[in-house]
Design a protein around this nucleic acid. Sequence first.
DNA 1: CTAGGGTTAG
Length: 383
Amino acid sequence: MSSSSSSSLYRRLHGLFAQNHKVTVKLKTDNPKTTSLIKSIKPTSKLPPKQQLQTIVDNFKKSSESPEFRSHYGNYLTAIHLLGNNSSAIEDIFDHQKQYPEISNEFFVIRLILLYGTAKMHEQARKLFDEMPNLKCQQTVFSFNVLLEACIRAEKYDTVRELFRDLPEELSVVPDVVSYNTFIKALCKAGSLDYAVSVMDEMENQGIKPDKVTFNTLSKAYNESKKFSEAEDLWLLMQKKNVVADLGSYSFRLRVLVANNKVNEAIELFEEMGKKDIIPNAFCYNMMIKMYVDDRNWEEAKRWYDKMVENGRYPDNVTFEMLISFACDKDNLDFALELCKKAMDSKIHVHDATMQRVVNGLAEHSKLEEEKELGPNHLRDTG
DNA sequence: CTAGGGTTAG
């Protein structure tokens, strides 16, 4: 273990490559009906694309006769992915659902509205929403909120603004905290951060207290636009309003401190989490490690990694990327290799380029070992 | 998976 000869290094490299090629992607197919749906495109792959689509649509309609099939959200999501951007095919199979009794169940319709959003079909989402009374389906603040969310997924932020302003009055629906949070999210995504913050006051005027989701949504937006001092103010406001911070709130806060290299405050915050029984996740440990990696402080970065493992938080791809690169920088190839092996054992994907650095480093190292073994004469000849 | 927030590195 003490001195690694070149031959043992090469054995390790071979092991590394052998495992590296075993990366597989597993398709999520827990439902047998979904599997058959996916399989249905294969036999028809020689057909023109138009007929392939028709096969999927027909297959889906046929499967829809089973209540069991209709109860699985995943089937509808799979259909959307299979049909891609063919909106008329998606509309066709969703319209087909109107003949089944579930269409009078608000939660069933909610799924379809959300899926329309995922497929970026906000107009169809709106149409289905408007049809709810005719379909003998209850229309509450739940479906209103989902319609807003569908428009966000379709990236129609102006539509969210219009709906939020006009619909509640039209339908006598009273917006709740989720409605406001969704509205704020849309404003953040549209870049109207100042307006989004002002909606908090509007909420309170309506007697709705901003909650941790409100603060986390705004905090995320401030983070993304690098407005760290505003994020700081928001954190203070959150304490002032006695909104209890959760793991997400602490994570955003930690990110701000690390971005500004406030080492002591970051450590303090991390300890505060422990006192409040909030268990730091891999992200929190990654932030601490990143802080020291940026500082080029190998000892502390390694110490936080050890702490992460001791506390049973599994290192993820980000942990490995950061530490393997840093270990290579520090010429600590044994540790780099150890991390590579650990990543592969845990089936965590590390970029080829990062792996390559380790392999190159080891190859270089073993060449030097060989040259040492060959003696100083050889070195003199080449140098 | 019967509505809303969840970040890093490359």
